[in-house]
Simulated assay, not measured.
Amino acid sequence: MVAEHVEQAEDPGAALAAIRILGADTFAPVLLTGEALAPQDAEAVALSLTALPPSRDVAPAPPAGPEGPWLMAWRDWGTATVLALLTDGGTGVPPTVPAPLPPPGPPQGEPAGSGTGAEGWPGWSVRMGQLSTLALPGLDGPIHDAARAAPLALARGATRAVLRRDYPTAARIARWLAWLHTDGVPLALDPAPLVEHIEVMAGGDRLALDTAIARRLITS
């Protein structure tokens, strides 16, 4: 499917850029079903990483550094890591592991803990949502450890996004809750009705993709 997308595109360069933006979600049909990755699709993803190479610089995590390069570095890490996992090497270049995300600070009125000095859970949960493309089976790393360490912050973030009717953000954070559910982490919020509510209340291609992946994670 990916190779066909590139071959039939009027602008192959734009098609390769689209693969880079989609990131590890390019592999979602394979990772969620156990199907084999077609060799031509693997070649198309590898070409996107060589034609538009990721930065080799390790960007500091926000708020210490700019958000954009750091987010893209993690998304590229996810793409390169899954490609290597599915093809026994991928491009042959090990992906650079970006700086980890500091834990969220404690909610107002609650005792300070290991998160003291970090941003509060509202901004932290939104930032984790921006990395929802990493919430896939087969991927594990510092961002996943951060999710495991703060499931309550993610539950609060998803609830806050729904109450604000920010359904795209809610869907992205719900993916992490679904991933944690699959990972066996106890949650304060059942992700199944949350995802169902988001699907009923909002639409759009990106939101549909996030909720479809979350549903598959929950039922796997």
Rank of each mutant, 00 (worst) to 15 (best):
H144Y: 06
V58W: 06
Q40L: 15
A174S: 13
L37E: 02
V97Q: 13
E35C: 08
W74G: 01
T169K: 00
V97K: 09
A135H: 02
V200F: 02
D205K: 13
M72F: 13
I19T: 08
I218Y: 06
L194H: 05
G123Y: 01
G92E: 03
T133Q: 09
R160H: 12
A9H: 09
L86T: 07
A150F: 08
A28F: 00
A214L: 03
G203V: 11
L47D: 15
D25T: 13
T116I: 12
R215W: 08
D140I: 02
A192S: 13
T79P: 00
V6R: 09
P107H: 03
L83Y: 02
A147D: 01
A59V: 10
A46W: 02
R216E: 12
P39G: 07
R127T: 15
P95T: 04
I21D: 07
D183V: 05
V93C: 04
P102K: 09
M201K: 14
A9W: 14
P98I: 05
L217R: 00
T91N: 03
I213W: 00
T50R: 06
E4G: 15
G23D: 07
L32E: 00
A36M: 10
A192N: 11
V185G: 01
L22T: 15
A146S: 13
T116N: 11
W176C: 04
G141Q: 05
L49C: 11
L134G: 00
L163R: 15
P100Q: 13
T219L: 10
S55N: 08
T50F: 08
L136D: 00
P111D: 10
A84Q: 12
L49Y: 10
P168D: 09
T26Y: 01
